[in-house]
Design a protein around this nucleic acid. Structure first.
Lengths: 206, 206
DNA sequence: ACCTGAACACCGTTCAAGT
DNA sequence: ACCTGAACACCGTTCAAGT
C-alpha cells in the first residue's frame, strides 16, 4: 500500500558507490568507468549523473566516506587502549594500517592523484585532517607525560603518519612481501615499535 | 652531407617520454593521453605506437628509468657518506626523499596503480629490488657493527623504505605542509633521525 | 523527481597504405 | 624503417525528452 519504490532504484547512489569500490578492488582506478558501472547495475549510462555531477565527484564522495571510517577506526583503537602513551600511539598506527589493508579500494581512492582543482576541495581536506588530529593528540599526550621527545609535535606526527601511510600503500600495491596478509600486520607491529622507540625521550643520545 | 634526419624525428621515443613526464608533472597520470602527446609533438596520433606497444608500456618504461635514477642517487649518497653506519642510513633516506620530490612525475609513475598483469613485469620488479637492496645492505652493515638491533633485517629495511616512501608520496601530493619545498627536506631529516634512533641497539628498552 | 536515447568530442588501438 | 588516415569500440558529458 505504501509507496516503496519510487522508480527502478531508491538507492542507486549507494549501489554506484559499492560497485565502484568492487571494481577498484579487482581492477584499478584508472580503468573505472561510469558507463560500465551503469551497465552492470542495469541502468542507462546516464543515470549516475543524477547522483554525481561527474566521475571525480563519485571518487571524492568515496574518499570522504573512507576518511570518516578511518577516523572511526582510530577512535575505536584509542578506546581499547590502555593509558600508556606509547602503547596508544602504537595501537593507532596498527589500526591505521589495518584499515588500509582491509579497505584497499577506499584507501586507494582517498590517496589517489587528484587534479589541482579537486585538491582544494575543503571538505575532503577537513576529513583527512580530522583523522590526522587523532594521531597528533596522542603524540601530544605522550609529550606531556614526558615519554616522547619535546620536538615540534606537528613534525613528529607527520613522521608517524608517513610511516603508516608508506606501509599501507606498499602493502596494498603488493610491493612489500609476496602478499602474505598476516605478515603485513606483523610488519605493522614492528614499524610501530621502532618509530615509538625513536620518539622516546632518551637521556643523552645525540 | 651526412644523413642527419632519418625522418621527422630520430629521437621520437625520448621526446615522448619527456612530454609525458612534463604532462604528469602539471596534470596527472589519469589524464595523460598518447594522442595529445603526439599532437603536441607534431606527429600523427599513431606515431607513438612505433616506440611503445601501448600506453602502459610507456609508463613502464618511465618507471624503469626512474628506478635506475633512484638507484644511482642512493649510490651517490653512500659514496658521499662517512663510515658511520647510522649516518649512512640517514643519508640514504634523505637522498631517497630528495629524489622523489625533485622527480615527482617519475616517482608517481614508479608507484602508480598498475594492473595485475603489469605488476608481474619482472624487469620492473628487479629495478625496484635493486634500489631496495642498497638500503638493505646499509642496514646489514649497521647490524654487523653492532649499532642496530639484530632483528630480521628484511623487516627493518621494509620499515625504513615505508617511511621514506610515505614522506615522499604525501609530500608530492601536497598533503604534508602547505607545499613549502624546504620543509620537506627538514622533515626528511627528522624522519631519518627518528627511525635510526628506533633501529639502534639499546641496553634494555623493552 | 528520476530515467532514457541520441549526439559530441575525446581516447586507445588496429590496419592498410604511403615515403 | 618510420609515418599517415580511416575505422572501431570505448568513454565522459550534455541535452531534449519521456514516465
Amino acid at each position: 500500500m505504501t509507496v516503496k519504490y519510487t522508480y527502478h532504484h531508491g538507492d542507486l547512489r549507494q549501489k554506484i558507490i559499492e560497485a565502484a569500490l568492487l571494481w577498484i578492488e579487482k581492477e584499478n582506478i584508472v580503468s573505472l568507468s561510469l558507463r560500465s558501472i551503469a551497465r552492470n547495475l542495469g541502468v542507462s549510462h546516464n543515470a549516475p549523473y543524477r547522483h554525481f555531477p561527474d566521475k571525480e565527484s563519485l571518487l571524492v564522495a568515496i574518499a570522504e566516506i573512507g576518511f570518516r571510517e578511518l577516523h572511526n577506526s582510530l577512535q575505536d583503537a584509542l578506546a581499547n587502549s590502555p593509558d600508556d602513551a606509547q602503547q596508544r600511539v602504537e595501537n593507532l598506527g596498527i589500526a591505521y594500517i589495518q584499515y588500509a589493508v582491509e579497505n584497499q579500494a577506499s584507501y586507494r581512492v582517498m590517496f589517489s592523484d587528484r587534479s589541482e582543482n579537486d585538491r582544494k576541495d575543503c571538505s575532503l581536506n577537513q576529513s583527512a585532517e580530522k583523522a590526522f588530529k587523532v594521531l597528533l593528540d596522542a603524540i601530544k599526550a605522550g609529550q606531556q607525560s614526558e615519554v616522547f621527545t619535546a620536538e615540534d609535535c606537528q613534525q613528529l606526527a607527520r613522521v608517524c603518519w608517513s610511516l603508516v601511510h608508506g606501509v599501507s600503500m606498499l602493502a596494498i600495491d603488493g610491493q612489500l612481501m609476496e602478499s602474505d596478509p598476516n605478515s603485513v600486520l606483523e610488519l605493522a607491529q614492528i614499524a610501530a615499535k621502532i618509530v615509538c622507540k625513536g620518539l622516546r625521550k632518551e637521556t643523552e643520545v645525540s
